[in-house]
Write a protein that binds this DNA or RNA. Structure first.
Lengths: 345, 345
DNA sequence: GTGAAAGCGCTAACAC
DNA sequence: GTGTTAGCGCTTTCAC
């Protein structure tokens, strides 16, 4: 009656203690390895653990210690090719610290975001990594009031939260300057959702590069877009409708760049000869597409890692330091931006 | 001293009970809505919940009820374009039932798989959804001994576990027969990792289609591959080295198909005119690639959903029924397999 | 219909 | 060093 549970499916710390003939406190001490316990007890306990195939119950631990060793990762959509690398970066870094990551897809809908934040809070995650969709300032504000560490990814919002972003200004600048150096002078910008700070900042970089090189800039050079392939199509259609007064474009992401190129080529317009193109993100396809796409690569995987690091600092630090980490993007030069000599060549 | 915690960050069920002047049992009953409670108490409790912004602690609940409302999802790599849709299917279905999903990337390494299985068991997830990498029968066996519901995804292994797969035999058959109907007669197969049951079964479908149409089949028609773009290159290189005695190929995934096409075209070989191609998966790029890729689409998102459904059945059913669900793939006909009239046209 | 109380499995004082 | 014990926040008998 006392020992018949040895082979039970779920051994508890109690079972281990009984089998090893020690108190549960001793078992706990040994398993957590913080205090010193005499070797012969260690041995007895460890073999009991073996025999019972004891696996500590993390739920009970979480309840007691108020630390679940889990974090929430809120993203718009894992099927959007930007996010897998981010998620992987987060997951790898989390796992390294014995943390689990709960994945949440919101499709950028504020209502879903709110649901998930509440959901994660219920689960008592130790922290939340958040990438918003559209303008979700409300939810960011809500996050700020929560008594939970938060790291914002790729979205710099006004509030007082830690953020990890890439330098979108620099990215936009590099892309545009590259086209200028390739001899282009009328450069359009295919925008993403204008509410996103990342998009705004890329555009600022674009504008500044034009200015700095004495090139003309006007609202008519900015084409609306929403990050989809199809909106690339539409932007190209407008370019054509406008009489093609442009000899290059910089798109706020690769998907739109490719959409636009496809459309232009369907109209017999040669890329890069007649119109040069630069994208943003360096998705996988950018390298394989014909013409291969010059683009601005974001260190997405590293962003994920950094975010986890920041979050863990917040969790353990206790003191809530609001930090901002800016990662440097990189220009990847391929065929779509034309050859060194410019369009004449 | 009794009520000064009202605005504390983390209200507990106790705080709510005190404020509403009822017992914690009553609060619990109302919040779970299973038993009937008199309306005036409901009102009092609900307004206390409001006032305190009470959020139940799921960890405590999980400990008590032995149900964490979370599941683990083990995949090789979220950056592999096959998986995002799967993950999304799982996540959506899970969320619909108030479940959270813990994502685990193993890179297909058995050691990582084992680590994660243990990890998830520690967290007392209610079930595990598992897609193995290579031949990980050991871990599948380990899963089988665990006292935890498991659903295997896309891998039919000998053991007694529930599985959700697509009909790879049918997929291979359809792909091959399509090429035959397009007038091709010497059809190569670019294989994936030969240990994967999915790959083996696709190959069986391929072989059977050839046989059934009285076409020759031999080992020399099977080219090794490992699902990467580069291995598609290599396969094409071998095709060329062999003197191109082939007028079509069927690749076990799209990535390799595209890799092979790229290589062939770099050698001036026209696709589909000289060599027709069919892939597998229908990744996003398949539609955009030039030539657009004829391929076999797997209902990946639905697989994720089905797997969750199965798992939830196991969890609630109590009785462990080992089921097997086979989803039907679909042939998506595009340009890479040539025109209806066959290669002569 | 409602409250009191036991206990899920664990950690961390606190005694000895 | 080691054991005893008090909870973490919740659900669920069991009485009334």
């Amino acid at each position: 009656m006392e020992q018949d549970k040895n082979n039970a499916i779920n051994a508890t710390i109690k079972d281990v203690a009984r089998l090893a003939k020690v108190s549960i406190a001793t078992v706990s001490r040994i398993l957590n390895g913080k205090e010193t316990v005499s070797p012969h007890l260690v041995e007895r306990v460890m073999s009991a653990v073996e025999e019972l195939r004891y696996q500590p119950n993390a739920v009970a631990r979480a309840l007691k210690v108020r630390e679940s060793l889990s974090m929430g990762l809120i993203i718009p959509d894992i099927e959007n090719p930007f996010f897998p690398a981010l998620v992987r970066g987060v997951e790898d870094a989390a796992q390294m610290h014995d943390y689990s990551v709960i994945l949440c897809n919101t499709d950028g809908k504020p209502a879903e975001e709110e649901r998930y934040i509440r959901f994660l809070y219920n689960k008592r995650v130790d922290g939340i990594l958040f990438t918003g969709g559209r303008y979700s300032d409300d939810n960011v504000a809500m996050l700020a009031t929560l008594s939970i560490p938060v790291v914002l990814l790729d979205r710099r919002v006004g509030s007082q939260l830690s953020t990890v972003v890439t330098d979108n200004y620099l990215g936009g600048f590099m892309a545009t300057e590259h086209l200028i150096k390739r001899g282009r002078s009328r450069i359009a910008f295919i925008s993403g959702p204008p509410e996103l700070s990342s998009v705004q900042t890329r555009r600022e970089g674009y504008v500044q590069a034009l200015r700095q090189h004495g090139l003309s800039y006007g609202e008519e050079l900015v084409l609306p877009g929403d990050f989809t392939f199809e909106s690339g199509h539409r932007a190209a259609a407008r370019l054509i409708a406008d009489g093609l007064s442009v000899d290059a474009f910089f798109a706020a992401n690769d998907m739109m760049a490719i959409g636009a190129i496809e459309y232009l080529r369907a109209y017999g317009i040669r890329v890069p000869e007649e119109i040069a193109a630069v994208g943003y993100d360096d998705i996988r396809m950018a390298a394989w597409y014909k013409p291969s796409l010059t683009t601005v690569r974001q260190p997405v995987y590293q962003m994920g890692q950094c975010a986890v690091r920041r979050m863990l600092e917040l969790v353990s630090g206790g003191v809530r330091r609001y930090s901002e980490e800016v990662l440097r993007p990189e220009l990847v030069i391929r065929d779509s931006s034309g050859s060194r000599g410019g369009k004449e060549q």
